[in-house]
């Protein structure tokens, strides 16, 4: 900060001569730009200035800026638009809400030019309540899950229904899946360890005959893949085994009729287009194979239960 101040001081000293030397066809105007502090000043001037074209000098006390510009190359609107896109309102432009929200707390000036919304715009509502589960269906699964009502929330059923002996295994699987959606290798490793433990604790005798049979066949693949995942903390490595884990898990979930609704989903891109599947408690797509890179890539191939 200090060095910036010194720099600013030097700039100020030099500016009177330097500006006029660089910018041709100069015009100077005084305009209001809303902001608070020293930091605002740095940002406003940094985004406003363009070499040989425009020079902005903002005063944080008066909120007035002197803009000097080459009238052949630019105009005040262009300069003020740049400044607004960085988060600072003027009497000509309002900053995008996102840009304003990105400003430091000390920079979040009072937006006196921003008018109240007078009409109940449904779109506004959507944005304000975006943390609610009632979200728009994301792109990829839109066509597939059209029939599902927004209010239908599968996770609510979880406490009520239980897949019995295998429930802990399923729960740990979903934890692991969520960790991979976040591309969080460490959490995935922890979740995989818990999954290995859960697999070990299953009392086969209490399973239904059909499930028992399937469990005997699938258990090895489950624990092997889960162990491999727990040994790594690199999400990309873990994903390879996760695809191997999801297949037998799907066979088991299919047999457990008592559990909550589960969605069998597919990412057709993974593994060079060979594709890979996963299971999720939500109908909307959150792709564990690519994480945020391709969050909504994929589609539901089967609704189980």
């Amino acid at each position: 900060m200090k060095s910036i101040k010194i720099l600013m001081a030097i700039m100020a000293l030099l500016s009177s001569t330097a500006i006029n030397a660089q910018i041709k066809n100069t015009k100077t105007e005084s305009v209001k730009i809303y902001g608070n502090c020293q930091m605002c000043e740095v940002t406003i001037e940094r985004v406003g200035n363009v070499k040989n074209e425009a020079e902005v000098d903002w005063n944080k006390e008066t909120k007035m800026a002197t803009i000097t510009y080459d009238a052949n190359l630019t105009n005040p609107d262009e300069i003020l638009k740049r400044i607004a896109l960085a988060g600072y309102d003027s009497d000509q432009f309002l900053a995008p809400d996102k840009a304003y929200a990105m400003l430091s707390e000390c920079c979040q000036y009072e937006r006196i030019n921003k008018k109240e919304t007078i009409m109940p715009n449904s779109s506004m509502k959507m944005e304000k309540h975006s943390e609610q589960p009632v979200k728009m269906e994301s792109h990829a699964n839109h066509g597939v899950e059209m029939g599902m009502k927004n209010g239908e929330k599968p996770s609510e059923n979880i406490q009520m229904q239980n897949a019995g002996e295998l429930q802990p295994v399923f729960d740990r699987y979903f934890d692991l899946k969520d960790a991979l959606v976040q591309s969080d290798g460490k959490s995935a490793s922890t979740a995989a360890k818990a999954l290995v433990t859960a697999i070990g604790k299953v009392k086969m005798g209490e399973l239904e005959p059909k499930t028992h049979e399937a469990w005997m066949v699938k258990m090895k693949a489950l624990s092997e893949n889960a162990e491999k995942i727990s040994e790594s903390t690199d999400a990309d490595d873990q994903r390879v085994y996760f695809s191997g884990l999801s297949q037998p898990m799907y066979e088991l979930m299919k047999l457990s009729t008592a559990g909550p609704t589960v969605y069998y989903q597919k990412c057709p891109m993974y593994n060079n287009g060979k594709g890979a599947n996963w299971l999720s408690k939500e109908s909307s797509i959150k792709n564990p194979y690519y994480g945020s890179m391709m969050m909504t890539c994929g589609s539901t191939v089967e609704k189980i239960n």
């Binding site: 792109h139 990829a140 066509g143 597919k266 057709p268 594709g275 890179m293 391709m294 589609s299």
Partner: peptide, 14 residues
């Protein structure tokens, strides 16, 4: 990708 990719649903450019 066969019909797995269609109708602009999966924008690879994402």
């Amino acid at each position: 990708m066969g019909m797995n990719m269609s109708l602009q649903q999966m924008d690879m450019n994402t």
